[in-house]
Simulated scan of single mutants.
Amino acid sequence: MAMSQRPCSRISCADPAVATLTYVYADSMAVLGPLSDTPEPHCYDLCRRHADRTSAPQGWQIIRHRVFSERPTHNNPGFTGESRVTRPG
């Protein structure tokens, strides 16, 4: 791992982070987007595997912004817009 890369925030995961997860408590929303330029103290940097598996707490919505290196997968089939919102079912 290069010195400039940050590791995933998940315990016991040393994979490079590709996305940043932010919780907006006032709006009951989680936002997952491209890796922030600098580490943010109240955000979580996630590797691809953990970003793909991330879900919002019950009753919250999650907004997923495209991470530039993303490729469509079973869990992340890709989308046509810049972001997608997952609402509780």
Rank of each mutant, 00 (worst) to 15 (best):
M1I: 09
A2D: 15
M3F: 14
Q5P: 08
Q5K: 13
Q5G: 10
Q5H: 11
R6D: 05
P7C: 05
C8E: 00
C8M: 01
S9P: 05
R10I: 15
S12C: 06
S12F: 11
C13G: 01
C13Y: 04
A14E: 07
A14T: 10
A14F: 06
P16N: 14
P16M: 04
V18C: 01
A19S: 07
A19D: 00
T20C: 05
L21E: 02
L21F: 10
T22W: 08
T22V: 14
V24W: 10
Y25N: 15
A26V: 13
A26C: 11
D27A: 15
D27M: 04
S28P: 00
M29S: 05
M29F: 03
A30M: 00
P34D: 05
L35T: 02
L35C: 01
L35W: 05
S36F: 06
S36A: 15
S36T: 15
D37F: 14
D37Q: 14
T38N: 13
T38Y: 13
P41Q: 07
P41N: 12
H42C: 13
C43F: 04
D45S: 07
L46N: 01
L46M: 05
C47L: 00
R48T: 13
R48G: 13
R48A: 15
R48K: 08
R49L: 09
H50K: 08
H50S: 00
H50F: 02
A51S: 11
A51L: 04
A51T: 08
A51R: 14
A51D: 10
A51K: 07
R53V: 09
R53H: 09
S55Y: 07
A56Y: 02
P57Q: 05
P57F: 04
P57A: 06
Q58R: 12
G59V: 05
W60F: 03
W60G: 00
W60K: 02
Q61I: 10
Q61T: 08
Q61L: 11
I62D: 00
I62K: 03
I63A: 15
I63C: 11
R64L: 04
R64S: 08
H65Q: 11
R66P: 03
R66T: 04
F68R: 12
F68W: 13
F68G: 13
S69C: 14
E70K: 01
R71Y: 07
H74A: 14
N76M: 10
G78M: 01
G78C: 03
F79C: 15
T80F: 11
T80P: 09
T80H: 11
G81K: 08
E82W: 11
E82L: 10
R84G: 11
R84P: 01
R84T: 10
V85S: 13
V85K: 12
T86P: 05
R87F: 10
R87P: 04
R87G: 02
P88R: 10
P88E: 08
